[in-house]
Amino acid sequence: MTQYRVCDFQAFGQHFDIEYRFPDLELLPEEGAAEDLADGLSMSVAAGRIDENSLNSGFRFTFSDLEILHSYESVSFGHAPLLLIIVLDGQVELKVGAVELTLEPGMAASLQLHPDYALQAVQHPQPRLRAVTLAYDPQGADIGRAASPTLQRLLACVQEPLHRWSVPQALQSQLSDSFDQALPELQQALVLEGLALQLVGLGVPEGQPLRETSPVSHQQQQRLELVRQQLEFSPEKDHTLAELAELAAMSQSGLRSKFRATYGVSVFEYRRQCRMALAQQFLERGFSVQQTAHKVGYRHATNFATAFRRHFGVSPKRGSTRRHI
């Protein structure tokens, strides 16, 4: 069993652009206490096993089987068009912008990793945390192994900050077995490639239609995506059309027409959908209607209740109990 110390996490973070924080450990000694700093860096945070496998296609698996000895937080500032986090045992808390969720055994989250909207994760002390992270980086693929058109279109459908989904039991077993079996390198790569494609297929949000050729240029689409992410990750803010148009480097009328043509809804209809999805999460976590209204950007709970009822067909109070019925 390997002991993972503070310095080990920091070295890992430098390689993958992740900042680690250790709230339970005192890592800022008094001036001149170099020995205390060295002791802090050598303190064990977790014990167990971490395996990494990078595939020629651009997929990278990280499998963790750890006992968490001290709480730690990670903030990911990197970039990836797709990141999947699967929990097999234990619990992980995730946050992107205003969106928060907790992953428990058998649950997974899909997201696009973007430095402007860092992924925050918290691991509390627990006897066993088994998790699988799958990152896709097309720039890491070998020449000639670029993503297929189907995969590229699937990746374009990942539009939620944190899309939570359930992992079939059979696939959970396959993930566990794949890291315990001693297979030849080529065979192991093929097995992991197949698992990666299964996970991507399941991790794409349901109901997201595959977009055909965009009516705007590639450069305009990238700028529109910045606007969409701004609305997605901070729907509680009072975004103005003028501010969003400046972000997209377009006129206000151009943003209105191009956003609708690309995403199928108006700019502020999209923000409303994001607010309702976020509101449902807060209600399911036990926040009151009044608290939820303020958290998602409504000044008055009555206006929020009306919008929620129009969107979901039920009142916020009934909506908060749906998951537990």
Rank of each mutant, 00 (worst) to 15 (best):
226 L>P: 01
87 V>L: 02
314 V>M: 12
71 S>N: 08
188 Q>T: 02
165 W>F: 15
133 T>E: 11
69 L>H: 09
267 V>R: 07
231 L>G: 01
11 A>H: 12
131 A>C: 08
98 A>G: 11
84 L>F: 00
113 L>D: 00
286 G>W: 09
215 P>V: 05
201 G>I: 01
17 D>W: 06
196 A>Y: 01
166 S>T: 15
324 H>F: 15
26 E>Y: 05
238 D>H: 14
146 A>Q: 14
282 F>T: 01
80 A>V: 04
308 F>R: 03
217 S>M: 10
156 A>F: 03
83 L>H: 06
213 T>S: 01
48 G>W: 09
233 F>P: 00
237 K>D: 06
91 Q>T: 07
120 Q>N: 12
174 Q>K: 15
57 S>M: 04
127 P>Y: 04
285 R>V: 02
23 P>T: 10
154 L>W: 00
318 R>N: 13
209 P>F: 00
304 F>K: 01
223 R>A: 13
162 L>H: 08
49 R>Q: 14
47 A>G: 12
35 E>F: 07
218 H>A: 15
114 H>Y: 12
116 D>E: 15
29 P>V: 07
36 D>N: 06
303 N>K: 09
238 D>A: 12
162 L>G: 03
236 E>L: 04
214 S>Y: 03
245 A>Q: 03
183 L>E: 07
78 G>C: 04
264 G>N: 12
50 I>D: 02
239 H>K: 08
79 H>A: 13
120 Q>M: 14
261 A>F: 02
29 P>W: 05
99 V>H: 15
172 Q>V: 12
207 G>R: 08
320 S>P: 05
50 I>Y: 02
255 L>D: 00
81 P>R: 03
193 E>Y: 02
325 I>Q: 13
139 Q>C: 06
177 D>T: 07
298 Y>C: 04
215 P>L: 04
166 S>E: 15
122 V>L: 13
129 L>W: 06
299 R>I: 06
124 H>M: 11
266 S>H: 10
103 L>F: 01
64 S>R: 14
216 V>S: 03
242 A>T: 14
62 T>G: 06
44 S>D: 11
127 P>F: 04
322 R>M: 09
212 E>H: 08
247 L>V: 15
128 R>E: 13
16 F>T: 12
153 R>C: 05
101 L>P: 03
290 Q>C: 03
